[in-house]
Design a protein around this nucleic acid. Sequence first.
DNA 1: TTGTACGCGTTATCAT
DNA 2: ATGATAACGCGTACAA
Lengths: 346, 346
Amino acid sequence: MKPKLTLKQIARELDVSVSTVSKALRDSAEISEETRQKIKAFAKLYNYKPNNIALSLKNRKTRTIGIVLPEIVHDFFATVIGGVEQVANKHGYNVIICLSNNSFDREVMNMEMLANGSTDGFILSVAKETQQKEDYHHLEEVINQGMPVVMFDRVVDEIVCDKVIIDDSEGAKKAVQHLIDLNCRKIGIITTVDYVSVGKLRTKGYIEALQKNGMQVDEENILKIEDMERSEEEIIDFIKKRELDGIFAVNEQFGASAVRGLKEKGLEVPKDAVVISFSDGELSKRFIPSLSTISQHGAEMGARAAELLIERLERPVEADERFKTEVIETSLIQRESTLRTKLTSV
Amino acid sequence: MKPKLTLKQIARELDVSVSTVSKALRDSAEISEETRQKIKAFAKLYNYKPNNIALSLKNRKTRTIGIVLPEIVHDFFATVIGGVEQVANKHGYNVIICLSNNSFDREVMNMEMLANGSTDGFILSVAKETQQKEDYHHLEEVINQGMPVVMFDRVVDEIVCDKVIIDDSEGAKKAVQHLIDLNCRKIGIITTVDYVSVGKLRTKGYIEALQKNGMQVDEENILKIEDMERSEEEIIDFIKKRELDGIFAVNEQFGASAVRGLKEKGLEVPKDAVVISFSDGELSKRFIPSLSTISQHGAEMGARAAELLIERLERPVEADERFKTEVIETSLIQRESTLRTKLTSV
DNA sequence: TTGTACGCGTTATCAT
DNA sequence: ATGATAACGCGTACAA
């Protein structure tokens, strides 16, 4: 077992000073060609790699990005991570991931932990509980310390920082309009409780789409899920009670359960009723019928968030203090769950 | 914007020496009650937190675990991360995640990056390409440097280190036996190419289960998928060509596609044919019919891997050099895709 | 009871 | 052309 090689060891071995070694390895013109070659050869032979921690301490930069997420068993967040990772690596950054599990306390803990020198900045989507409590002191604190933060998806309007979002309300409108165009008359929505920002926005889009088409908004057709664990039963129950010919679900899990509810009710999808959902993941693609979705382009959001963060990190000074909110275009991906001609229904 | 507080600043502010501050904050008895209180009050007021990087450099420990994964848009790996995260946090460790995207080069790069001071040890599942090339020098190197490594799921037999696996072959047998118990006579398997260790083992279990029951192994009933992207078409094609009454898929995506193939062929699941798969994720649960699975208990694997790693990190000396291979029990979760009485078939 | 000195690994600056 | 020194932030052995 050979512990990692340090400059000091090389210096001792080659009988030169530490600074000579450092300079030689960085190709400083100060060092004679001869010694430089000797040192570089030695370093290469024994596979010397500078210690990141020491560099971080010296440079006061870690070249590490912290991602804080509510959950990870969720294709959307997983693809976001992929996007961040890719951009980060391209720029020589590492990625630290922490999960809040939708708990406020864990979010605070994680951010404090990472803020103490582990990361140069944050990319985060806030926990459900945080949005509920509306307590954002930990975010303010981190920003106050001069660490850039980029929020995505579940963002907090009150916090001033870069943001990457999709137009949730617009995406929802697209989805509902799609259902209306298929001649749906009684459209239900399966969404989350209102304190989840994106849930609220999608509900808003749903309502606006109905109104724009001169349709009644019936509160009874709106199901707000609080607990993911028990969502399936709740959804099936809801579907069975209501007489709906079109369902808009705010995520693919809800969409899948909606289809199940419809089937149990004896309705065929897409013939008797159609279903569309947000977040285009593995489930939507492999499901039978495959689910039409509003894609959030998670990888793209992650990539964009990483770019924004790195840009800010590498900006020479804090010259530009304007913060951007980037809106990623959603797209409607039609699959089997809404695949029918207009005439089929009515 | 107030930059982070350091010991030095507190010392200057309170007109004492840095070490006095350090000791006071660590409740050293050397410091008088009075100054200790004064310093602690000040630190608390301005929310002093020691800098992790400096601590890492000093202690030559980062209290960070590096996870290297082939992919993340995959419930199995996502749940593993969850398990690691939980245990790590409990012990005050951070988690850095790097994705290899199944590329050998990226795996090597990531590990080198993390090994240069960013982590104390690794938890990893090797990339497909790495298993194909059978080039493990990067693993050996890291281990040689004295960094503990715990491999899980896709492990490498040639590398000596702690491992957390499931008995893939045994799990596959369980699955196939389940199909046989349902009176299936022509059982097919949808698996991965052989160089993926777990795929190979599951194929082995499939074959052994058939043989144990005195059934013929027909190579034509074995489909080996190379490219995940094109898997769905390949699977449907395979199913249509063969006359199978039971399908064992090595992951839930393949399982879902198998059901689709059967349906397109005009067969009903589970009435005319049954399907069971490995890896119990969101897809299996929400799918229609919900998929019977062999659960790999990802969270448990992750948790166990983290425990093994932390144990080794915190062991006083390198006294115990024996390495463990922990086998997590798989369990068969029966759902709709195999829900029928023995008599239904034949 | 408090302060000084040193070291973790690196680099930048300033001698020699 | 090379080396010594200081500094990044912290903790600790030792000195006062």
